[in-house]
Write a protein that binds this DNA or RNA. Structure first.
Lengths: 222, 222
DNA sequence: TGAGTTATTATTCACCTGTATAATTGATGG
DNA sequence: CCATCAATTATACAGGTGAATAATAACTCA
C-alpha cells in the first residue's frame, strides 16, 4: 500500500558538480569504512541523490571507483609539486625538502587520504585500469622526485639518481603509511624529521634547519 | 525436484589440518582476487569442504580473517629473524644485512604475501582486532630491527637507534610494496641493492659485498 | 506561457552475502 | 557388530549488492 507517491523534490546541478560530489562521497566512504562501505546506495545518500543517478553520470560503479582513485593519487603528487615550486630554482636542496615535507602534513597526510589509498591499494592487483593508474601515478611521482635530486649541485650520474629516487620514494611511502596508520606511535614532527634525515643521509647532503618546520610559510598551529 | 539426495562423501580430518587448510584457502583467495573474492563459499570450495564447515571451526568469518592476517604478518617477521640468526653474533652488520635481505626474496617478497597484505591493509582502520594485529606485528618487527641496529659497533644512543629503526623499516616497507606491486619496473636484485645501500647510508656503515647476493647460502636460480 | 529535454527519482530484478539450523555419515570404542 | 558422538553436508533465510528500466518533474528556450 504505497503512499500516493509524494516524490522527493530535487534541483538540477551541473554535470561537473554532480560528478565531483559523487567522487567525494565515494572517497569519504572508502576512507571511513573501506571499499565495502562505498556501496552505490551509500554513495548516493552521502551525495544527497538517489542511487540511480550514479549510473547516469558513470557507466558503472567501477568507473566511479577509477575516477576517485585517480583523483586521490594525482592530488598527492600535485600537492608535493606545488610545495616544491614555492622555493626558487637556485636552491635545489630547499626545493627537495619542500617536496618531501608536503607529504607529511595536510592535505596529503590525512586519515582520509591514507584511508582511501589503503582501501583501493589491492584493486591494482586485478583490475587493469587500477593497475595502470597506480603505475602512472607512482612513476610520475618518482620522476618528479628524480628531477629534484638530479638538480642537486654534484657530479651528474643518472643511474645513481634513479636508484636514489626509488629509495627516497620508498622511504616517504613507508613513513607516510605507518604515520597514517599508527599516528599515536609517533610524536608530532617526528615523522618529518626522520624522513628528512634519512633522505639527507642517502643523498649525502644536509638540509637547512628551516626545512624541519612542519608548516613553512604559514602560522604554526597551537 | 531434487535428486534423491546422493550426499557428497567426505573424510574426517584433524581439527588442526582443517583450520590450516581454511586459513590457507582464505589467504590464497585474498592474494588472487582481493578480500571481496574470499567469500565463505569460495574459501570452502578451495579448501575442499562445504561452507558450513567454516562456522564449525571459526565462530564467524571475521575470526577466520583475523587468523589469516595474523599468520601472514607473523610469518614475515619470523622469516627475517630466522635469516638473521644464520649469521654469528660477532658480525652485527652481517646479521642486519641478512635480516634486510630476507624481505626481498621468497617466501616474503611473493605476490601472495604482498597481495594478502594489500588486501587486508585497510581492515586495520576500522576493525579493532585487525588494528591490534597490525600494530603488534609492526612494532615487533621494528623492535627486532632496532636490536640489530643497537648491536652495531658504535657509541650507544637509543633515541637515535629508534629513529633509524623507524626509517629503515619504512624504507624496507616501501621497497617491498613497490617491488611487489610493480615487479616489471625493477631489475632482478635491484630492489635489494637499493635497500642495502639506503640503510648503509642512513646508519653510516658499509655492508660487505657478499650481502648483496640475493640467495646467500643456497644455489642461485637459473 | 507552453512544449520539449533530460536530469533525477522510483521501482524492480537476479544474484550474492554471511549465518543459522537440521539432517546425515564417517569414525571410534565397547 | 552395534551404539554413540561429532565432523561434515545440506538446506533455508534475511538482507544487501549493482544494474536495468520506467515514471516524473525541473529546467530551457522559443
Amino acid at each position: 500500500m504505497p503512499e500516493p507517491a509524494i516524490r522527493r523534490p530535487y534541483r538540477r546541478e551541473g554535470e561537473e558538480k554532480r560528478r565531483d560530489a559523487l567522487i567525494a562521497a565515494a572517497m569519504a566512504l572508502v576512507a571511513e569504512g573501506g571499499p565495502e562501505a562505498a556501496t552505490v546506495r551509500a554513495i548516493a545518500a552521502r551525495a544527497g541523490v538517489t542511487p540511480g543517478l550514479i549510473r547516469h553520470y558513470f557507466q558503472s560503479k567501477e568507473e566511479l571507483t577509477h575516477a576517485a582513485y585517480r583523483q586521490v593519487m594525482e592530488a598527492m603528487t600535485h600537492e608535493a609539486m606545488r610545495a616544491a615550486a614555492t622555493i626558487p630554482e637556485a636552491d635545489p636542496a630547499g626545493r627537495l625538502a619542500a617536496f618531501v615535507a608536503a607529504n607529511f602534513r595536510p592535505p596529503v597526510m590525512t586519515t582520509l587520504l591514507v584511508g582511501v589509498w589503503a582501501g583501493y591499494m589491492h584493486l591494482g592487483r586485478n583490475d587493469p585500469v587500477m593497475h595502470a593508474i597506480h603505475e602512472a601515478t607512482y612513476l610520475g611521482y618518482r620522476d618528479r622526485l628524480q628531477e629534484l635530486i638530479a638538480a642537486l649541485p654534484r657530479p651528474a650520474d643518472p643511474a645513481r639518481d634513479r636508484r636514489e629516487a626509488i629509495a627516497c620514494n620508498a622511504l616517504i611511502d613507508g613513513l607516510w603509511i605507518e604515520g597514517g596508520s599508527l599516528p599515536e606511535n609517533f610524536d608530532s614532527g617526528e615523522v618529518l624529521r626522520i624522513a628528512l634525515d634519512g633522505i639527507a643521509a642517502m643523498l649525502g647532503i644536509r638540509f637547512p634547519d628551516s626545512a624541519y618546520h612542519p608548516f613553512p610559510e604559514s602560522e604554526t598551529p597551537a
